[in-house]
Write a protein that binds this DNA or RNA. Sequence first.
DNA 1: GAAGGTCTTGACTGACCGGTCAAGAAATGG
DNA 2: CCATTTCTTGACCGGTCAGTCAAGACCTTC
Lengths: 209, 209
Amino acid sequence: MPAPPAPHTTSPVDAAGRRLTTRGQKRRAQLMLEGARLFAERGYHPTSVQEIVATLGVGKGVFYWYFSSKEEFFLEILRAAQTDLRRRQQAAIADETDPIRRVELGIEESLRWFREHREMFNLFQFAITQEKFAPVLRQGQQVAVGDVVRHVKEAIVEGRIRDQDPELLAQAIVGVMSHLARTYLYERDESVEAVADGAKAFCLHGLLG
Amino acid sequence: MPAPPAPHTTSPVDAAGRRLTTRGQKRRAQLMLEGARLFAERGYHPTSVQEIVATLGVGKGVFYWYFSSKEEFFLEILRAAQTDLRRRQQAAIADETDPIRRVELGIEESLRWFREHREMFNLFQFAITQEKFAPVLRQGQQVAVGDVVRHVKEAIVEGRIRDQDPELLAQAIVGVMSHLARTYLYERDESVEAVADGAKAFCLHGLLG
DNA sequence: GAAGGTCTTGACTGACCGGTCAAGAAATGG
DNA sequence: CCATTTCTTGACCGGTCAGTCAAGACCTTC
């Protein structure tokens, strides 16, 4: 995504309402990228702000120019990632009319996203265990489940999925997906296709099929 | 499990090889229980050793009499919980000869255990994101998956489960179970039976059935 | 080239944390 | 009763961390 030209008109603004130049936006993005990487690698608490700025070779003040606190910084990383994942999911199913096929496409695209953003796996999983961060995570997850629920309901109406609590079915799908992604993509570095096929088959047919 | 009498013979020994009196064993257990509770509630890093001992109304030295470090302490909590969960699973399926039924019983009993040890949920999930603790967690999870794999293989041989990679099927089951446990037992406090029924149905029949 | 906003520096502060230890209390055993 | 071992105390140490801030560099605009 190319940055908009924005020559010298109304500039983008950060969370506190300050203006940000193009240069400033780049720094911001740099910090978030590096922060996500380090948080994922060593954990949120064990990673100091000092380490993050040192990796970029800048002073500590830079961090606090762009973010009000380490906590807010982490929340922004989480929100940005969730937004990006959702956008990808939506784009992947946009042209598909078959609800079951939409579920399958959603699984595939989510796995692909997690593959490309392996570092976000640990971050999500850690964030959900901390009271300070869990609400944001839960909200995002609920949105994802809501998407699946709509497809499932539609398919139940069409009589193509057995009549069970749609939310439970959706949650189960999310569970399969995230656990398989962790085990096979994150820990064992296998291919998205193989995992996606396995996940789709299990979600549709279960053990017996 | 009643503590053995052990009047004044060879006494139980702690990790460092020191003897432990009955009183000592109680303190140890107290610390682990309270530690698990606090770690789960506030997180591992944000919970200080000081807080743990203060909650029990004892001095800091007590902690370091029974455990060599905060890290080792946490690992012991994890190991003890995993051992307990596994024992419960094994006991639950001991008398069952049907492999598919064994899977179902395992799901039920695991959910029951997580319901009784809600605090372990966050601990497990946090631990798996930290390089220091992940190996222990992964090993325990692999044991659990291995148990399921055996039942699945047996059922495949009998032609009762479709012929797919047994480990992937087992991992998918674990994924469904842990995510449903988190969502419905941990976050929403629903009944084990309802969740277990949903989980079993999904694992056996998937969406279509 | 001056003015003013944007950005950067890094020393500093106050708080906290994991872990130690000398001293002594409490139980145990003879 | 004394000796030994087990257990407890809490002040203390070295170190780290999130966050501040005065000073100044950079950049844009007029």
